[in-house]
Amino acid sequence: MSRKIILVAALGILFVMFFLSMEEMEDLFKNDAKLYFFEHGLDDTGSSNLITAILLDYRLFDSLFEAGILLVAVSGVIWISRHDFEERNAHFMLDKYKTPELFVTLSRFVFPLLLMLGFFIILNGHLTPGGGFQGGAVVATAILLLYYINLERKTDISLIVAVVKFAYLGIVLTASISLITRGEIFTNFMAVDAPTMSKYIYIIALDILIGINVALCLWAIFTAFLKEGR
């Protein structure tokens, strides 16, 4: 009991510190970066969606490793979930669950719509809210609905992971083409003063690759968990 009181007191100290420092916050916020993005974002990168502009151009290095983190997570999950030797309680989770009929019917209806929405989000990342990461997650959700429609469905994880590796290498390659065309590393391979339309090529290509990467990674992770359950 005394332990919890001390814990709450310690958290209270942190809270008070935060509360007091927030008072200074009011007129402090520096918005140099925001103004820069607002003024130059469209001209620099060709993307009117500034978040996509930051993800795919200004801070592409982050996004590269964001996709890389998914690759590592997938490889790690698959490595750890592989049954190399006998475990003691491995038989406990048998799939006795049956999906309700209504859910299956609805899933059949929703599946194509969700897939379309996902592709739309991926392809229009530069104009509307969205992009590779968000659209990839939606596509992955659509694919996962297939598992509800058919519980016996079998998926070859190693094939998915092989495609993911190619997609990741594709992202790295697309990102580094600019080293040859412009002499700058990790940016749009079209020149800064190129027409906006030609800059779209790069953004859409990268968005599609990232979308593939994210969708397949989430799919593989989910399948690994399902296998663990069966």
Partner: peptide, 23 residues
């Protein structure tokens, strides 16, 4: 600083897999 955060977290994740590598 944010890039630093991404790399620290990636180090942690990869090191986790390596620690549990023997399973």
């Amino acid at each position: 600083l944010f890039n630093l955060f991404v790399f620290i977290e990636l180090t942690t994740i990869v090191a986790t897999v390596l620690v549990g590598f023997k399973k």
